[in-house]
Design a protein around this nucleic acid. Structure first.
Length: 237
DNA sequence: AACTGATGCAACCGCCTGCTG
DNA sequence: ACAGCAGGCGGTTGCATCAGT
């Protein structure tokens, strides 16, 4: 479902993120934050560009992200806000805690848009029949119309998965630690193992140049990443 | 079983904006 | 006022998976 990993001409890795990269990014940001995205990959030992790291963190790795099916309320909110603001996904995302603009955008295009368009056609047809000379400019359905005319939305809401539970305040609650979920670890032992790995990273990796450590296979980074730019010390704390 | 088109979504690209010197 | 840089945003793409034939 994701692009195959590859290295571009500058030696920057692109495409799907590996678990190892996720771990490194999470671990680094949890420790150091992200004051400078462009410098972050270098200090985190990632052969990625800063934008890629930012995107991965913002859309997939950061804590409190809500994943899984959308509730009817969320769909309603998206529809409502899209009608109000248009494709201002970040603005819409601000009103949906735990959802990213990218996710909302995807959801709109894959789920809600079709219903909106269906309704648009209906609306336009109706409008055309009632007033053939009037412009058929896009008109999104009202909330009521969406609910009434889009039974699929209701169905999808009812079939919401149990992957994500919610706190009393309706904020997302993850069944296990966020990191576990992001690296597809489901068992307690795996979680411990992961943190032991992090611990190992913190004691060795975080004090030594990453290239020499065994965390990566030798061919993980292109030569260009092991060259002059990588000679400067990564870790100064 | 094999093929094909549709779907979902992670990730990339390019532009815009705001900040700093 | 201007230039350069970094962050952020919206549009688009690539590809695994699913559903239908």
């Amino acid at each position: 479902m994701v692009r195959a990993p590859y290295f571009d001409k500058n030696g920057i890795k692109r495409g799907a993120w590996s678990d190892e990269e996720d771990k490194r990014l999470i671990s680094y940001i949890e420790r150091q934050g992200h004051p400078n995205w462009r410098q972050l990959p270098k200090f985190a030992g990632l052969a990625r560009c800063g934008k890629s790291c930012r995107l991965r963190w913002m859309n997939y790795l950061r804590p409190n992200l809500k994943r899984g099916n959308y509730t009817q309320k969320e769909e309603q909110t998206i529809t409502d806000l899209h009608k109000k603001h248009g494709n201002k996904w970040s603005l819409i995302a601000e009103n949906l805690p735990g959802r990213t603009d990218n996710e909302i955008k995807n959801y709109w295009h894959s789920h809600l848009k079709k219903f909106s368009q269906t309704n648009e056609i209906t609306t336009c047809d109706d409008e055309f029949e009632s007033n053939p000379t009037q412009s058929t400019e896009f008109e999104r359905p009202t909330n009521d119309a969406v609910s009434a005319d889009s039974p699929h939305i209701l169905e999808s809401s009812l079939s919401m998965s149990s992957e994500t539970s919610y706190n009393e305040d309706n904020s997302p609650s993850f069944s296990s630690s966020h990191i576990e979920s992001t690296v597809n670890l489901s068992r307690e032992e795996d979680s411990v193992a992961l943190w032991e790995t992090f611990g190992g990273l913190s004691s060795n990796f975080w004090t030594e140049p990453f290239i020499s450590e065994n965390a990566f296979s030798q061919d993980y980074f292109p030569i260009s990443c092991c060259g002059e730019e990588m000679d400067e010390p990564f870790f100064i704390w």
